[in-house]
């Protein structure tokens, strides 16, 4: 038996909107730690890791570890039917081939339940080691989204370089080239507007903008984004989910031949 009650249901709606275009089907894993997911995109270039910790739910009952295969597009369709202020409860019985999403309006005058069919998904689970990164950039998530969008109108790939001077996003295409440099800036009114760069080693890595643009669908989840880079390793683009956990996107770099 599984019953997870999330008062801020809009968080789950935003989570689905942030990953449904990157990943088609995925197993949601439920354990005493929380509600989590790990999935690769269909071309196996990017990986999404989601964690919603059990403490973030108002009620969290998970009698035994459970893995539920869901089509994310269908799940997003159902969650779209929940109001932004609704409380969402996820329910499943042991051995059932369905999951139920219950939506309660804040005033309790409208209660809906949507039952979705589960599916068997044979997915690889990858072990992601805790790593020390050469450079970590924290910046406003809207700024990162803007940069990825702007650069993708010029080129297909972005080179992200971190030096003492700041973080540089560069692209080249048929019509020309573009460079955007963001300097460390901590003298802002609101801490979330700051750009903070922690650098151990200079880093320069190239990525497909097609994927970074998918990642920025998570912008509504958090006002800041953290980009962790090490030479020749996948980048981690992390959006924290208020008090509850995170959505992390991992993307393999493009290597010059």
């Amino acid at each position: 038996m599984l019953e997870l009650r999330l008062v801020q249901g809009s968080l789950l709606k935003k989570v689905l909107e942030s990953i449904k275009e990157l990943v088609n089907d995925a197993n949601f894993d439920c354990s005493s730690t929380g509600f989590s997911l790990q999935a690769m995109d269909s071309s196996h270039v990017a990986l999404v890791a989601l964690l919603l910790r059990s403490e973030g739910f108002e009620h969290y009952r998970c009698d035994r570890n459970l893995s539920m295969g869901m089509n994310l597009n269908n799940m997003a369709k159902m969650l779209k039917c929940a109001g932004n202020d609704d409380i969402i409860t996820i329910k499943a019985d042991d051995g059932s081939d369905t999951v139920t999403f219950m939506f309660e309006s804040p005033t309790q005058d409208k209660i809906s339940d949507f039952e979705m069919k589960l599916m068997d998904i044979d997915s690889e689970h990858l072990g992601i080691p805790e790593a020390e990164y050469d450079a970590i950039v924290r910046m406003p998530s809207a700024e990162f989204a803007r940069i990825c969008k702007d650069l993708s109108s010029i080129g297909d790939t972005v080179v992200i370089s971190v030096t003492k001077e700041g973080v540089k996003f560069s692209t080249k295409g048929d019509i020309g080239a573009a460079n955007i440099v963001c300097r460390q800036n901590t003298t802002v009114d609101k801490p979330d507007d700051a750009t903070v760069i922690e650098m151990k080693e200079p880093v320069s890595l190239q990525f497909a903008l097609r994927y970074t643009n998918f990642f920025t669908k998570a912008t509504p989840l958090s006002s800041t984004v953290t980009i962790s880079l090490s030479n020749e390793l996948p980048v981690v683009v992390e959006y924290k989910i208020a008090e509850m956990g995170y959505v992390r996107f991992y993307l393999a770099p493009k290597i010059e031949e």
């Binding site: 196996h44 270039v45 990858l126 493009k254 290597i255 010059e256």
Partner: peptide
């Protein structure tokens, strides 16, 4: 020319 490798090249299957 740059080449895109899969993410599974970097992380082992558990």
């Amino acid at each position: 020319c740059s080449r895109q490798f899969p993410i599974s090249l970097y992380f082992a299957t558990t």
